[in-house]
Nucleic acid binder design. Sequence first.
DNA 1: GTAGGATGCTAAC
DNA 2: TTAGCCTCCTACG
Length: 276
Amino acid sequence: MPEGHTIHRLAADYRERFGGRPVRVSSPQGKFADSAALLDGAVLAHTEAHGKHLFLGFPGEEWVHIHLGLFGKVNFGGPVAAAADPVLPPPTDTVRLRLAAADAYVDLRGPTTCALITDAEKRAIHDRLGPDPLRADDDPAEAWRRISKSRTTIAALLMDQKIVAGVGNVYRAEVLFRHGIDPYRAGRDLSPGEWTAIWDDLAALMREGVRLNRIDTVRPEHTPEAMGRPPRVDDHGGEVYVYRRAHLPCHICGTEIRTADLAARNLFWCPSCQQR
DNA sequence: GTAGGATGCTAAC
DNA sequence: TTAGCCTCCTACG
């Protein structure tokens, strides 16, 4: 689940359900227990996302820094139904962080990072992240400065959070397909216009991802209905062109989708639609 | 029941 | 470049 759109969505969901209210803070799994005790009863004052990093702000410029990594999951819930005196279900023992109010809770499991940090430490995290297509004030030129000088492949550059924040393996594969760009092209071989188009498309796709809480990248004219084909089911919940479709025919040209290892991640692309 | 993978990242070699 | 971390789910016996 967790690419940047998930994290921005979580920032909004945490704010909507707990923002401005005092929250009970606990760490049933234990690894965040000391910090949870310090925060217990404090008001959740801010929530913010930058790329795949989530920040929960408490009074005194203290922040809970959360990074889901590959496995992290967040689960919102309410009281057990049909109880005369509504009670929240007890957390299971893998819950790293639970925030709870009288009528709602949110559980965090399996994150790479869940730590209490200072405002200065938070600033340092922002400083090492590139611009995020989902942050309105972020500047794509900052990313272009590095991409346009780099011999590294655009596929690797898009996954580098120092260069662009929030893009993961799905958006990487899909945006390159949508622009017909060979993933192995060097960053410096892209034109400024190509970069602008990629950035604008990422911003639009990821905004849609926040809204729907899933990744859909297939243009209306390429949906199965539009192309007169049987409906398809992508097993990660969204509709995509190439991600995890290795050896299946390309939706547009029928060529077999290829896959390869790139920087320890699976890359997917259509060798026919994505040339130059 | 078990193995293997997954939308991520970092430290160590 | 590799191992390691964190958890859950599916596929396969």
